[in-house]
Write a protein that binds this DNA or RNA. Sequence first.
DNA 1: GTTAGCGTACTCGGATACCGGTTGTCCGAGTGGCAAAGG
DNA 2: CCTTTGCCACTCGGACAACCGGTATCCGAGTACGCTAAC
Lengths: 160, 160
Amino acid sequence: MRMSEGVEWAVHSCLILAWVEDRGPVPTARLASRYDLPAPYLNKQLQALGRAGIVTSIPGPKGGFRLARRPERITMMDIVAAIEGPDEAFRCTEIRQRGSAGDITMRALRRPCSVASAMRTAELAWRRALAAQTLADVMTETERQLPEAGDRVRRWFDRS
Amino acid sequence: MRMSEGVEWAVHSCLILAWVEDRGPVPTARLASRYDLPAPYLNKQLQALGRAGIVTSIPGPKGGFRLARRPERITMMDIVAAIEGPDEAFRCTEIRQRGSAGDITMRALRRPCSVASAMRTAELAWRRALAAQTLADVMTETERQLPEAGDRVRRWFDRS
DNA sequence: GTTAGCGTACTCGGATACCGGTTGTCCGAGTGGCAAAGG
DNA sequence: CCTTTGCCACTCGGACAACCGGTATCCGAGTACGCTAAC
C-alpha cells in the first residue's frame, strides 16, 4: 500500500498558496521550479485540487492558482481525497461468497463482511485523524519550527 | 492508494485456520478451492504470513499451514504488515529541501517535515485501530452474524 | 490625448506514452507415508 | 508376523512472466495584457 507522491506535492503547494494568500495567483511553473518538480505533472495534481474545490484556477497571463477558501477550512483529508480519489484502500471483493464457501445462508450476506468491517473501522480512524488537521495547523507547526517560513515564501513570490 | 487484494485473502485464510485449530494443517490447494482463488498466488501470501511468524508451514504429505499462535494474539495489524510490508503509505521525499526552496536554514531540517508529521499521525491512528482488533474479535463478530460459521468450516475440513 | 481593435504571449486543461509494482504462474527441493520384500 | 528399505506422491519455497495504475509528457483552447493606429 503506497500513497501517491502527488499528495506530498499537493500539500506543499497548498502551503505556498496559503502563505502567498492575496498577493495574486501562482502559476504551476513557479511552484514546480521552487521544488524542482516536473511542471506538467504537478499541473495535473493542481487540476485535481481544482475539481475538488480546494483551489481555483485563473487562466491567461498573470494567471495561476489560488486557494479557494481559508486554510482553516481545508483539512488534510480534503487534499488526500482530492488526489487519491474517493475509494477506500481496502476493497472487499466478497470472496466469502465464492468457491465452495458460496453455499452459505443468504441472511448472513445481508450483514457486511466482518473482515471488511474491521478494515473499515481502521480506515475511518485514519480519515478522522486526517480531517482533524487543517492546513492552518500545518502552517502553524511549520512556523513554530521556522518562524520566518511565511515571510520567505512571500519574498520568493514578490521577486521575479 | 490501494491495499493489496492479498490482505483480504490472508485474513480469510487465517480465519479458516483459526476455526480448524488443531485438526491438522490445511494445504494451500484446499484453501484456494474454498474461495476459488489461484492457488500459487495464495501460497505466496501464506509464505509472507509464515515469514511474519503468523502461521507455520508443514511440508510433505498431510502438510499445509496452521496458525503459529492463538487467534487472541494475532491482530489485524500483524496480517496487514505481513502482506503489505513494513513501509508506511506516505513517504516523505523531502521536497522542501529541493529546488529554490533548498536554501533554507539547516536547523529547521533537524525537525521532521510538518507535512510528514501530520500524515504520520493519521497513519498511526490507523495502525492503532488495526492493532486493537484481533483475529479472535473478527471470529466472534462473524459468529454473531452466523453462529454455525465455525462448525461449517470444521465440517468442510473433515470431509474429503 | 483618448479609445477601439488586434496580435501575442502566457496560462490552464485534457489527451497521450512510459515504467515500476502488484498480480499471476511455473517448476524444483524436501519430506512423510505406503507398500513390498526380506528375515 | 514384524522390520526395514526403497519409491512415490504430495507439500512448501522461491524464481520467472504479464497486466495495470501511477508517473511523466505533450500539445491545444482560452484569456488578459500591451501595442498600435485611427479618431
